[in-house]
Design a protein around this nucleic acid. Structure first.
Lengths: 182, 182
DNA sequence: CTCGCATGAGACACATATGTCTCGATTCGG
DNA sequence: CCGAATCGAGACATATGTGTCTCATGCGAG
């Protein structure tokens, strides 16, 4: 039965990503319907909306970690890591973006996950500074924000049909490092 | 009584900006309370949540237009206009950001306002391209997205206490044009 | 001073989301 | 083939937001 449970949990989480991506205010009934699962069954695995949101956040973090780790396995430099990571994250942005505006981010596990992600990114940026990719005079905190928001910009461009994910990632990386001047 | 009405509408709109900025899902009762106004009075001026959101969007657009127009009055070039506009918009981002994730953006007036803003921005960027500020090979649509999202990044940096609005605007402009490389 | 009107407070009905429960159907293991 | 467990569907109670209405109050106009 354990396997079945996992399968059902995964289906619910997957459905939640799809539904909430398109409408962050969707009801749990919508999620259950998308997962082809009874509403009661959803409540058997997730106590309520908050529990589900927390699980989604942790799942999203795992997905991101896995994608980034896979994409950066063969990278030699931190600069390469950042560029490859950007390519890996951008296609996942659509699934996870609704979590950033989620008000239920008060759980300690969630805040810790976010803190860890930001800290790791800041670390890589600091290392890339040492490699000469970023100006040491530009605050690392700013580069972190710019990195994350240019990913969002790339995703928006893809959604608008103005670029492929690869092109968007390329533009985001170019803008972050060299800007858009000639 | 006309003056009183305007005053009350303004108070409601101002309260709505404050409340929704901190919690986009707040109830109309919260807004009325913040405005020191009866809930019924709010409904006398705004038919419902959608109406209020539309009014907020149009008000925000006016505020942005006014701020940008004022800040760019003495600009000689489109490049200067874009940089000055960025400085003007960034402090207002906190008030308006919740509107970008608002699902009630299906009203024709709202979509038209957004379309106009984006079109004007794209026009200025095209002109700045001609001035040599942006690489003509970089799609204008991308620069629009980067411009808007770097404003958001700047606002986030200010909120985090890592920069003043002026510093954040400067970083955003530098990143958009020259990037963050040394 | 008095009248009239807008207002704030609150009652009321309604819609929706949520959480719990029960029951018949289905499925899986023995 | 049978029994137990799980599931989906739906009923039910509850909470919250919303929209409308009434009414006493208080303020300003006349």
């Amino acid at each position: 039965m354990r396997d079945k449970d996992v399968s059902k949990i995964d289906r619910i989480l997957e459905a939640a990503f799809e539904v909430f991506s398109q409408n962050p205010g969707a009801s749990l009934a919508d999620v259950a319907k998308q997962a082809s699962v009874g509403r009661a069954t959803l409540h058997r695995h997730f106590a309520g909306r908050d529990d589900l949101m927390i699980a989604l956040t942790l799942t999203a973090a795992k997905e991101l970690d896995a994608a980034v780790e896979d994409a950066t396995a063969n990278c030699q430099t931190y600069t390469e890591r950042l560029e490859a990571g950007l390519n890996a994250i951008l296609p996942l942005a659509a699934r996870h973006m609704f979590l950033s505006t989620d008000p239920a981010s008060q759980d300690p596990r969630v805040t810790e996950v976010y803190a860890t992600q930001t800290r790791d990114l800041a670390h890589d940026i600091d290392m890339a500074k040492a490699e000469g990719t970023f100006d040491p005079h530009v605050p690392t905190e700013w580069i972190v924000q710019a990195y994350e928001n240019l990913i969002y910009a790339g995703w928006a461009t893809v959604v608008a049909g103005d670029a492929t994910p690869k092109q968007a990632a390329s533009l985001a990386w170019r803008t972050l490092t060299k800007g858009t001047c000639p």
